[in-house]
Amino acid sequence: MFVVFTHFADWLTYQLLGLDSASNIGQSLHFFIEDTSKIFVLLFVLIYVIALLRASLNVEKVRDYLQGKNRFVGYVFGSVFGAVTPFCSCSSIPLFLGFVSARIPIGVTMAFLLTSPLINEIAIVLLGSLLGLKFTVLYVALGLSLGIVGGFVLDLCKAERWLIPALAARYQQQGEVELSHFSEDKALTLNDRHEFAKNETLTILKRIWKWVFIGVGIGAFIHGMVPAAWFEENLAHGQWWTVPVATFIAIPIYTNATAIVPIMGSLLAKGMPLGTTLAFCMSAVAASIPEFTMLKQVMTWRLLALIFIYLLIAISIVGWVFNIINVLG
């Protein structure tokens, strides 16, 4: 089914533009055209279909559902909800506050926030089409685990102590919690769903199209221009320290799943070890300096440092484990 995009890229690169299929530039451009055309068609169709299905899900429902749940159930559901709810990092703070004021444990809220950027329908479309089903399942499982374990660890450290004082006081308040429910719960007609899905598709595509170009552009550059020998010499041996170093460098980087997946594909194709690649890419997506700056409004340095250290250790472990499996397998 995807072969049509290869033909399209063949035609455009080699026939219309007359580039040599053996040249670096020809290969890079072919890769770029094939991937971007495929990705945009898939995104357009899948964002619409998924939005149609989840039109009635909103964060208030998630909050109500998580409130008062057993902590351990909470981590799992928090993380799963993080994966299925659409999410833009500019709303992470109001959402965080909404959860805290409903006295949902910090760990459950953080499980939601950690998984949210890692997994969404866009990441899944890209992974599925560029790296295959097995890899997609692996990535989703790791993304969920990172959130679930993170939530557990933060609660274990009693992370609520390190919220900003005004918020910590709110969290510890006694008495009934009053939750706002202004959005009326009406059954959605098919037409409502279509309207929602149409808006959602346009909004999301408008937000991410440039990321697709950036990601595939860098991926295409690596694919066509960087010789495999360079990777072989510098990165392919999976020395143990490359994993934490890659993670440490990537955590502050601001990017998102849309841009990173095509890059991940190219790195793997060039022979970079699976664990190192995963560590680099997941930590680039999971957090960033802008994200930490935003969280600083509601958290103290101690809590931010704790999150940073957790990500560094957890993602390094993921990297090491997969490098070992890679070597053994």
Partner: peptide
């Protein structure tokens, strides 16, 4: 103000209130 946003019960911004009643959020 973040605390004011929280007190209004708004979890996805932008939110709109008319005469103190929240009527819209998230878009």
């Amino acid at each position: 103000d973040l605390m004011a946003i929280m007190d209004a019960g708004i979890m996805t911004t932008p939110g709109v209130a008319i005469d103190g009643t929240v009527v819209h959020t998230g878009s």
